[in-house]
Nucleic acid binder design. Sequence first.
DNA 1: GACTTTGACCGAACAATGTTTGAAGATATC
DNA 2: GATATCTTCAAACATTGTTCGGTCAAAGTC
Lengths: 205, 205
Amino acid sequence: MIDMAEQRSLADRRSDATREGIVEAAWRLSRQEGLTGWSLRRLADEVGLAAPSLYAYFDSKHAIYDVMFRQGYEQLDDIASRWGPAPGEPHRRAFKVAAAGFMEFCTSDPTRYQLMFQRVIPEFVPSADAYSASVANYERFRALLGELGVTDDRELDLWTAISTGLTDQQISNDPGGQRWFRLLDRAVDIFCDHVGIPPEPEGQR
Amino acid sequence: MIDMAEQRSLADRRSDATREGIVEAAWRLSRQEGLTGWSLRRLADEVGLAAPSLYAYFDSKHAIYDVMFRQGYEQLDDIASRWGPAPGEPHRRAFKVAAAGFMEFCTSDPTRYQLMFQRVIPEFVPSADAYSASVANYERFRALLGELGVTDDRELDLWTAISTGLTDQQISNDPGGQRWFRLLDRAVDIFCDHVGIPPEPEGQR
DNA sequence: GACTTTGACCGAACAATGTTTGAAGATATC
DNA sequence: GATATCTTCAAACATTGTTCGGTCAAAGTC
């Protein structure tokens, strides 16, 4: 009988536990040796299998990166769901919290950041499925900024550039430090002044 | 007799013309197939040699990338040397020219940009020599902004983040387009307002 | 001219990679 | 116990960057 739910390929039906073990080991190796610093044979060793056995769980090495890519965006989505103005909270305050949260998320795991936002793996292009996770995330981001008073698309684009620019510099040129992180509040203030989000009341600051 | 000038290895003494031909072909292939989309055998074919012969001119594939890396910064330095306030020119105007020049330089050759500013080649680390070209460039950038009125290091860092952020978004998310490029003048204005560089006189605008 | 030296080049091979193939054991199902 | 289905892997393949050993021609040297 044909399963009416979405078709799962042979590989997809394999033990989910082993599958997750492989991805976990891939994260571990990526953080240790760099995203491209490990081979399938090494990864297989790590989970007690031979290299070809991995192909029972993933169609290719890129397919493993693809799962990791999606997991990254799921984790971001998880965190981002907690952002937004609390009742009575000044929008600029909420803006700063969200911006710092994003930057903290990125800098706390540079490997994950590279996978999600940079093109460090030659030939790797996220699948439509994984890509949609990143699009969903962008939609949430757009909605959040709308809630905070950023309605113009160009202003959205400008803030995207500023926040990713700060993050990128921080990770590339001062990993583990605070050099660009410290500039974030100021950047938020400048930007908020420009788009007309009112300053925080002096007393609460 | 020992040459008292700087020692040149065997590879270094080979015909400079062939050497340059190899690098040119490497640029061509990189733009066509991506920075990592070609093999040494393919490159050798392109210049009418066999793969091992390349090792008479370069110590490794990375050594070829290294030359390209340095060439990129030499080209940037060449352009950047023409930036700076003309006599009587408002600083903010000169700022905009330089900023647009930088962004134009980056977006006009995304492959070169990737090599210079992103880490898309696994394991590739520029040699001390090539790296110094990028440092020299940063020093020029710092001097230029100083001339225009940006003295605080934190403001320098902030502008670095903003301009590279805009550039990065432009190349990654709208290659060949203008979406983030159009935001540049506004970004300069916001930044200049913040650091106290006076606005351009209305008449000249 | 013979002889050596040097420069330029490449065929063959090496180790490592991601991946495919074919088949072997293990496990379940009847 | 027989059959089918999982789960696994040894062996092999094509491709990669790179090394080794050698060939061949040009340039000096006597």
